[in-house]
Amino acid sequence: MMNIATVTLNPAFDVSFEVDRLFHTSKMRGDNERHAPGGGGINVARVFVRLGGNARCHYLAGGATGAALDRALDQHEIVRNRVAIAGETRVSTSVFERTSRREYRFVTDGPEIAEAKWRECEAAIAQAECDYLVASGSLPRGVPDDFYARIATAANNRGIRFVLDSSGRGLAGGLAAGGVFLVKPSVGELRALTGQELESEEEIAAAARAIVERGQAKYVAVTMGRDGGILASADGVIRRAAIPVEAASAVGAGDSCVAAMVYAFARGRAPADAFAFGMAGGAAAVLTPGTDLARARDIRRLYEETTGTPAP
């Protein structure tokens, strides 16, 4: 059985609903309200379990919203390891406007984390029994820039493959020590990391290859939305077109991509196949409304339709 552990330092209690049209000042009545546990690593775990793997979530949570997050994880039957904090877990809100078919997403910074709490989380992660350790999401205030690098080094020392999906200082700090098995930046995150415009596909590929050449990551999967994605490794660059689907929500598309890629790697699939399965995961997430994330049957269907080979 495939086992992963995920790390979510800045989780969120996700709320989504729909309105006919957005207005300022006036009260708007919404419907199709959904609640779900959210945050990068938690989302990865939800999709990984749907695909048939085992996942344990390590996360920081506090306050009334933290308790709601705990209950939501239990409802999804996700194995969890919570480190209790003093602050309130943030709420993430997504609103879908039916007239324009546009989605509006509101996310706050989240609470500041005391040193004792992030160290407690680090110690718990160091004992995780898994094949892959997936750190996904932003670093909250109070957590040092090198937190992801610290747990990556500990994972590598235990023969665990480390996967990183973050932004800003979390991405830069996580890559600093090297030895990352897979990193999945969006093209916007890659631009911020490099400080370059990266306007052409060739420039994007070169920036991804540079991360590999520096020994910071073995595989770099860059997602580019409607422009598809690029996978860079020591063997070269693989390009995949975006899978055309009717968009219902973009929530969790990147997390679903990571979960599908890790699942395929864990099943022994080649990098090109794992990347194709990841792209199918991201597209499948776009099909589902609100906070629903990718469904296993959609991931496998899209993979088989676009590759012509049986899904893992």
Rank of each mutant, 00 (worst) to 15 (best):
R90I: 12
Y104C: 05
R90Q: 03
L60M: 13
T65L: 07
D74K: 03
F96V: 06
R56I: 10
V91H: 01
R71E: 14
A126I: 02
I113Y: 05
E120L: 04
A126T: 01
G52H: 08
E129R: 05
E97T: 04
F96E: 04
E112N: 12
A124N: 15
E120K: 02
V47D: 06
R102I: 00
N54E: 14
Q75D: 15
I85M: 12
G66K: 00
Y104N: 13
S100M: 13
H58W: 12
V79G: 03
H76S: 09
N54P: 09
I78C: 11
C57M: 06
E97F: 04
R82E: 06
T93L: 15
G110N: 02
V134A: 07
A124L: 15
A86Q: 12
R105P: 02
L133F: 07
A114R: 14
R46D: 01
F48M: 12
A126G: 12
A135P: 02
A84Q: 11
Y132A: 10
T93K: 04
F106N: 00
E120V: 05
G110M: 07
A116M: 13
A116R: 06
C57F: 07
A67H: 13
G53T: 12
T65D: 03
V134Y: 00
I85T: 14
V49T: 12
L73E: 01
E115S: 13
A126D: 11
L51A: 05
T93W: 02
K117V: 09
A116P: 01
D131S: 14
S100L: 08
F96L: 10
G110K: 04
C121L: 15
